[in-house]
Design a protein around this nucleic acid. Structure first.
Lengths: 118, 118
DNA sequence: CGGGATCCAAGAAGATACTG
DNA sequence: CAGTATCTTCTTGGATCCCG
């Protein structure tokens, strides 16, 4: 008779895990960048993600790499360049990003409506 | 020729909006609690969400209320009680929570496999 | 270019005590 | 019970300099 409760708890804890993995101010946006725009270089990420500094970018990229969500590749170009991309595992986050994106788009429409309603 | 780029940017910004609205260490877990378990009281939320203190709980609940995602109702019981629940708008976040939950569950299975593989 | 190291300011968050 | 107020601690993150 507590079957439902256990399922809910399971679900709740699962959300908590995702929270932990995507904790940090910028991780979701890094994933979103790589998910939406595809493979990017360090500098490009910094330009895309508004307001992020080199320190935080490096730190969160490393944490994401440790968790196996992104892959870091050093290219042997004249001045060295590094590209980042989602791993196969990181790509499985796409549905979450997509859900967030579509919700955000609807949210914008809602906000616009509210403003014009005044 | 920059049509695709604009769509991507739109999408990216939309994700960013969601980030902002769900910013803060506990907001996602509060939403998840109310989504998974349904209407809850202040104290119940504090018990469910491991580690949260009264200060953060109050603060983030207020912010969520301001954003129209949750509804706060004061019940006139002997010792006063307050219940929180998702608004119709807050309920639209359910798909995101569900995606996170199912990803988290698969993530757990993966971690378990990795450990037993050793 | 892609970072690492250091220093420092600001804000987020915890603990505790208190109130209606 | 449901918070608020206060104080302290910890984390975040910005700025800067440096290195391969």
């Amino acid at each position: 008779m507590e079957k439902i409760s256990n399922d809910c708890l399971q679900k709740f804890k699962a959300v908590n895990d995702v929270k932990d993995i995507l904790s940090g101010k910028w991780k979701v946006m890094i994933i979103a960048s790589l998910s939406v725009f595809g493979e990017k270089r360090y500098m490009e990420l910094q330009r895309i993600i508004d307001g992020i500094g080199t320190k935080m970018l490096s730190k969160e990229l490393q944490e994401l790499e440790i968790n196996g969500l992104i892959k870091r590749t050093v290219m042997d170009t004249k001045p060295i360049t590094v590209k980042y991309e989602l791993t196969a595992y990181g790509l499985t986050l796409t549905p979450i990003i997509d859900e967030m994106a579509s919700w955000g788009i609807q949210h914008r429409e809602r906000v616009i409506k509210e403003m014009s309603a005044k």
